[in-house]
């Protein structure tokens, strides 16, 4: 998404501070030298002193604004920030949002949640599960053209054979 174009001696330091990887495809060029801008891309020219502010801008550009979903559990009601949800699943006709430790009932249909979080890097992996890509820890290939997603909270979610192709295409696997 972001490409860093700075002199070689500064590159590693700034890259660590900005928390960016070296992408093959990118839309934004980040540079400290206005002569290095690329005309067909969006260029952000900054001074090294403003790196902290650039980090916040990059987070906003990459993740967008947070979306909140209202969830319920035995303790009451809570607005959940979508990026903390590992995955949504259906249990006994209820849509459940699974967080690191907590689980909330969401009073929406799963396809409604999917539409709401369309741009928030959630992906449908089966008829019963919608997964946060950022919360996938590891992918284990299983037999029969299936994948097992190990989530960061330790749960396992299966990518159904029907959604296998879409899943692989979305993540460029």
């Amino acid at each position: 998404m972001f490409k860093l174009k700075v002199p070689k001696k500064q590159r590693e330091t700034i890259r660590d501070k900005l928390k960016i990887a070296n992408p093959i495809e990118y839309e934004y060029v980040l540079t400290t030298d206005k002569d290095l801008i690329e005309e067909d891309k969006i260029n952000i020219v900054f001074d090294e002193e403003h790196v902290d502010k650039i980090v916040k801008i990059l987070d906003l550009l990459a993740k967008g604004e947070d979306v909140f979903i209202t969830g319920y559990n035995e303790l009451g009601q809570k607005n959940i920030e979508s990026r903390y949800v590992h995955y949504f699943t259906i249990e006994d006709d209820d849509v459940i949002a699974v967080l690191n430790k907590y689980r909330f009932i969401i009073k929406m249909k799963l396809y409604e949640v999917e539409a709401l979080l369309k741009d928030k890097h959630f992906i449908r992996v089966s008829k019963y599960a919608l997964v946060n890509i950022n919360r996938i820890d590891y992918i284990k290939p299983a037999m029969n053209s299936k994948l097992i997603l190990l989530m960061k909270n330790g749960d396992e979610v299966e990518v159904n054979r029907h959604y296998y192709k879409t899943f692989k295409e979305t993540l460029n696997l």
Partner: peptide, 28 residues
Amino acid sequence: YKEFKINYKLRKFQQRLRNLSTKQKQKR
């Protein structure tokens, strides 16, 4: 090979989303 390739690509994808906390699962 397939498993390593899939997870390498997953990490690359997550890095593009500025999720840099993803580390390779060494044990696995």
